[in-house]
């Protein structure tokens, strides 16, 4: 029960973070990706503290409680499958300016395009999951 409460709070905080940071505005994300046009660098100021807090926090916890919070890592193999997946993701991200978290956060907009995006997002995850299961044992 406690775990569910913590997860709920983390999910809500994360969603508010996406909204406040501007990540839930497609034009903002596409502006960040528009290196050769009117490049908007503000999203770097989202990534910086986010990664920094996570990095410092996990390191500090690992130092204070080495047994409980030891660093864990389960890296993806850097093979063709991985590179293709990253490339497909980046192309889709650039096309609309939405990644999975923000796509959930803007569901309250209640518009057809937003529901369509979220539906096809789930479909894409589901299909890729089935394909991986079939051809490479789930990885």
């Amino acid at each position: 029960m406690k775990r569910n409460l913590y997860a709920f709070l983390a999910g809500a905080t994360f969603a508010f973070g996406l909204a406040v940071s501007g990540m839930s505005r497609p034009s903002k994300v596409r502006g960040f990706l528009d290196f050769f046009g009117d490049w908007d660098i503000t999203l770097l100021f989202v990534l910086g503290p986010a990664v920094g807090i996570y990095l410092l926090g996990t390191r500090l916890a690992a130092r204070l409680y080495p047994k409980r919070f030891a660093r864990q890592s389960d890296p993806e193999p850097l093979n063709a499958r991985f590179f293709v997946g990253c490339l497909l993701f980046g192309v889709g991200w650039g096309m609309v300016g939405l990644c999975p978290g923000p796509a959930m956060v803007i569901l309250g907009q209640g518009s057809v395009p937003v529901f369509l995006f979220f539906g096809f997002l789930l479909l894409g995850i589901f299909l890729a999951d089935r394909a991986l299961e079939r051809f490479s044992g789930g990885r």
Binding site: W93, M95, V96, G119, L123
Partner: peptide
């Protein structure tokens, strides 16, 4: 785009 984002991720 959504298919690419979901499948790619």
């Amino acid at each position: 785009a959504a298919l690419l984002v979901g499948g790619g991720a």
